[in-house]
Simulated assay, not measured.
Amino acid sequence: MRRLLLALPFALLPLTLAHAADEHDHDHEHGSLGAHVHGVARLDMALDGRTLELELDTPAMNIVGFEHAATSAADKTTLALARETLLKPHGLFSIPEAAGCTVTKQKLESPLFGDKDDDHDDGDADEHEHSEIHGHYQFTCNVPAVLNKLDLTQLFKSFPATQTIQVQLVTPKRQMGAEVRPSNPVVKF
């Protein structure tokens, strides 16, 4: 399954490049792949047999409102609440109960969660760096046929600074990409 997710960006590269041509000029210096743009997140989804995988990549600014190490009590609380929300993927991605999906693996990574060497002396050097949050979720679904849409309403409600999610998905029926916004948060497949 990991192979499938790794191949996903290449399978949809023509779509991504076509979309990049339509992007505003402020993104041209970064290119379209891997650009760190506040308000924009990326979600890759793959359904293979009974296995559903979701990978979320987003600037930390979209999730917690900052990208520096949490030092104040308020920042630490915000970070802890965001982490707790991100570790509840059933609600975050509105996975239908009828699909019988259970989480088999989930992992959150971010320098803000202490996943890289956090040397407090380097705080000033890291001040201008972009922090990302990466979530990987794997489910085993008893009735995968029920999965025919991805509803990101709750993700937008939980993290209102997220304005756009670039979704790429691969299912047995199709491969597609979509740009999802709070006003239209559902991708049907």
Score class of each variant (00 low, 15 high):
L86G: 01
V40C: 06
N62M: 09
R42G: 00
K188R: 14
D117F: 06
F159Y: 00
F66I: 10
F156R: 05
D119E: 13
F139N: 05
Q168C: 04
A82F: 06
L8K: 10
D124T: 07
G49A: 07
T102K: 11
D126M: 09
H38A: 08
H19R: 14
Q175H: 03
A178W: 05
P144I: 13
D27F: 04
T162S: 06
A73F: 06
L4H: 07
C141I: 13
M45F: 06
F66S: 08
G49W: 03
Q166A: 11
H24M: 01
L79V: 05
S158P: 03
E97A: 14
E132W: 12
Q168P: 00
T77A: 13
D44N: 08
L13G: 00
L4K: 10
F156I: 04
S72P: 03
D48C: 08
R42M: 03
F156V: 01
V64T: 02
S32E: 14
L52N: 06
F93P: 02
L79W: 01
S183T: 14
H134M: 03
P59V: 03
C101Y: 11
D118F: 08
T71M: 11
H36F: 07
T104Q: 13
E84P: 01
H28W: 12
A161R: 14
A74I: 04
Q175G: 01
H90F: 06
A161E: 12
A60L: 02
T78A: 15
R174Q: 12
L47F: 07
R83D: 08
V64Y: 01
D126T: 06
L79E: 00
L52S: 03
L108R: 09
E53Y: 04
G135A: 15
K157I: 01
H68E: 14
C141V: 13
H38T: 02
H134K: 14
I63L: 12
T102F: 06
E67R: 03
T162F: 02
M176R: 14
D48E: 15
H24L: 11
S131H: 08
H26W: 12
I63F: 07
A35M: 12
G39H: 11
P9D: 15
D27H: 13
L86T: 02
L169H: 09
R3W: 10
P182R: 00
R181S: 07
V180S: 02
L169T: 06
K76Y: 05
E129T: 12
M45W: 05
F10I: 02
V37R: 09
S110F: 08
T16P: 00
H134L: 05
L81T: 15
H134C: 00
A7F: 09
G34H: 13
G34K: 07
F113C: 03
A73I: 09
E84M: 04
